[in-house]
């Protein structure tokens, strides 16, 4: 089947999609957007997290056909024309990236967390990220990164405001 939707602000079309294919598969294998990762493909690890119409979802659990006409934003769509998103920069600066396989999902999930709660508590961060597995970092520097991103975002908002 043919599926059209919006990916990172651009209209995309995938042809010859088999009905069993997930959004994750179509992004990675048909649209040249392999940033979303395939660590478990059963919704346990969160490494395939993308925005679907503004809500973070595990793209491995979304059938590609469900996405027709909708808006998808992946890790490749986080950075703007003027550089990295503050969440991306904070993950780098805090040393929260080792192998990096969990990173795309964590970035999208953290981005969504800070959109709805700009000043999360530590317990709130842990709750929000509890669906994203990381095997390298022990999560300490991920906590640091989220705190850093929140602090920078609030500074930026105050300046902008």
């Amino acid at each position: 089947m043919r599926i059209g939707f919006t990916a990172n602000g651009r209209p995309v079309v995938a042809d010859d999609v088999w009905e069993g294919e997930s959004l994750l598969y179509v992004l990675r294998e048909r649209l040249g957007l392999p940033g979303s990762k395939n660590a478990c493909e059963q919704g346990e690890c969160g490494s395939c997290t993308v925005y679907l119409d503004g809500s973070p979802v595990c793209s491995c659990l979304v059938a590609a056909g469900q996405v027709a006409g909708r808006e998808v934003r992946t890790v490749e769509g986080l950075a703007g024309e003027d550089g990295l998103d503050p969440v991306q920069q904070a993950f780098l600066d805090a040393g929260a990236v080792q192998c990096g396989f969990c990173t795309p999902g964590l970035l999208v999930q953290t981005h969504a967390l800070l959109e709805r709660d700009p000043h999360p508590s530590d317990a709130g961060i842990r709750e929000a990220l509890s669906g994203n597995l990381c095997r390298c970092t022990g999560y300490e520097k991920i906590m640091d990164a989220v705190r850093l991103a929140a602090a920078r975002r609030s500074t930026r908002t105050e300046v902008d405001g």
Binding site: E76, A79, L84, Q89, L92, V97, T103
Partner: peptide, 23 residues
């Protein structure tokens, strides 16, 4: 020094090619 990873920017942009990303 706590130097930054040379592959860090590619990794946070989703552009780092893991073995499962090749095509």
């Amino acid at each position: 020094a706590s130097a930054a990873r040379p592959d860090g920017i590619l990794k946070v942009r989703g552009e780092f090619a893991y073995s499962s990303d090749l095509w």
